[in-house]
């Protein structure tokens, strides 16, 4: 069974790229356009990893991380936040909320895969 990853980003471009890269490496990828939709998607299924952007409408990535950590079903699901080099503080913010790690945008496909492997094998 391939691992299932939920990619959350309001940018379709980023979702597509994350999804393309991960699918190419044999992962199953679900997509959601913001935090609320991500939570919706997780009501009925579990995933092996959540990758989320931080800046999103409706519910941002930090709130999503917090919400997931408060839910016992997802307390030990790895979560990666997507940050950009300009907001270093976001890494810490993400961590404080309970994120497992981060990926700095823009990323090379290899980097993404490496980080994904790092946190979910």
């Amino acid at each position: 069974m391939s691992k299932k990853i939920l990619a959350v980003d309001d940018s379709k471009t980023m979702r597509d790229m994350v999804s393309f890269t991960l699918k190419g490496a044999g992962y199953d990828v679900l997509e959601a356009a913001d935090g609320l939709l991500a939570l919706d998607a997780l009501v009925s299924q579990s995933v092996d990893l959540v990758i989320t952007d931080i800046n999103m409408p409706n519910m941002d990535g930090i709130s999503l991380v917090k919400a997931l950590r408060e839910n016992p079903s997802f307390s030990s699901t790895p979560i990666l936040v997507l940050t950009t080099e300009s907001d270093d503080s976001k890494k810490n913010e993400g961590r404080d909320a309970g994120a497992t790690g981060w990926i700095v945008k823009p990323f090379e496909p290899e980097k993404l895969l490496k980080v994904v492997q790092k946190v979910c094998g």
């Binding site: 471009t13 980023m14 790229m17 950009t84 990323f107």
Partner: peptide, 9 residues
Amino acid sequence: HSIKAGAGA
């Protein structure tokens, strides 16, 4: 931010 992310990629 979104524009930048894509531009970088």
